Amino acid sequence: MPSLVLASTSTYRKQLLERLELAFLTDRPDVDESELPGETPTATAERLALAKARAVANRHPGSLIIGSDQVAYSDMQRFGKPGTAERAIGQLQAMRGKSIFFHTALCLLDTRNGTYQQDAVSTEVRFRALSDAEIQRYVEREQPFDCAGSAKAEALGISLIEYMRGDDPNALIGLPLISLCNMLRTAGVEIL
């Protein structure tokens, strides 16, 4: 079986991949994650998932490389990783009472032959009409500075959400495991 490499240093993606109980390495892709002029949020996520896999491919010949990227958006507004409490509060204020779409793209690159498989999963997240006090308390308690959209649905952030709609709940956290299992099987990896 070829080596498996996660082209990410995200602790969230690493924890998700660990659920499959497969041996894997992680490698930082060092990819510019800026959107291109005129690029849709979905196109950004899909382009970056492939770019991340390709960025580490030369360091791991004979391997299967997993690249993933997520873009959160509503209409023309994107919600990236806030980095600070002030920006997290601002994002949550902008998202309250609205549906936000989290488009999570996935790529499995086979360095043995240069082929790759791609898929993407969109999740609609409807945020409750949150008060400023609720937002402030949430940000202070969870400090979601490294999460697109400033909310950790896998933790206390679930209290901010009215509903979620999507095909794979793992995609919202950062790695669509259902699609990944299908891709790995296609590449000849036995999961069970």
Rank of each mutant, 00 (worst) to 15 (best):
P2K: 11
S3P: 08
L4D: 08
V5T: 02
L6T: 01
S8Q: 03
T9W: 06
T9D: 12
R13Y: 05
K14G: 10
K14Q: 15
E18R: 11
E21K: 12
L22H: 08
A23V: 02
A23Q: 04
F24W: 00
L25A: 14
T26I: 06
T26Q: 04
T26N: 04
D27P: 07
D27S: 15
D27T: 06
R28T: 13
P29N: 05
P29S: 06
D30K: 00
V31Y: 00
V31S: 07
D32I: 04
E33T: 01
S34Q: 12
S34N: 13
S34K: 03
L36N: 06
L36A: 13
E39H: 02
P41H: 02
A43N: 04
A43Y: 01
T44H: 07
A45N: 09
E46P: 06
R47T: 02
A49T: 02
A49F: 02
L50D: 10
K52I: 08
K52A: 04
V56M: 03
A57Y: 06
R59F: 05
H60W: 10
P61M: 10
G62K: 14
I66R: 08
I66L: 12
V71Y: 03
V71D: 09
A72I: 08
Y73H: 14
Y73N: 05
D75K: 05
R78K: 07
F79S: 08
G80Y: 08
G80L: 01
K81V: 07
K81W: 01
K81C: 13
P82Q: 10
G83P: 10
T84S: 15
A85N: 14
A85G: 15
G90W: 10
Q91K: 01
Q91D: 13
Q93N: 14
M95G: 12
M95D: 01
R96V: 06
K98N: 02
I100T: 03
I100A: 09
H103A: 13
H103R: 05
L106R: 07
L108F: 09
D110T: 05
R112L: 11
R112G: 14
R112Q: 13
N113C: 14
T115S: 15
T115E: 15
Y116D: 15
Q118E: 14
D119S: 15
V121T: 13
S122V: 11
T123E: 01
E124M: 08
E124V: 09
V125K: 04
V125S: 00
R126P: 11
R126F: 05
F127G: 00
F127A: 02
A129P: 07
A129C: 09
L130W: 04
A133Q: 11
E134K: 05
Q136P: 02
R137Q: 13
Y138S: 07
V139C: 09
E140F: 05
Q143E: 15
P144G: 09
P144E: 04
A153F: 04
A155C: 11
L156M: 08
G157P: 05
S159E: 14
L160A: 03
I161M: 00
M164L: 03
G166N: 00
D168Q: 09
P169T: 01
P169I: 04
N170G: 10
N170Y: 13
G174I: 06
G174Q: 08
P176A: 07
L177W: 01
S179F: 01
M183T: 06
M183P: 00
M183L: 10
L184A: 12
I191N: 11
I191S: 11
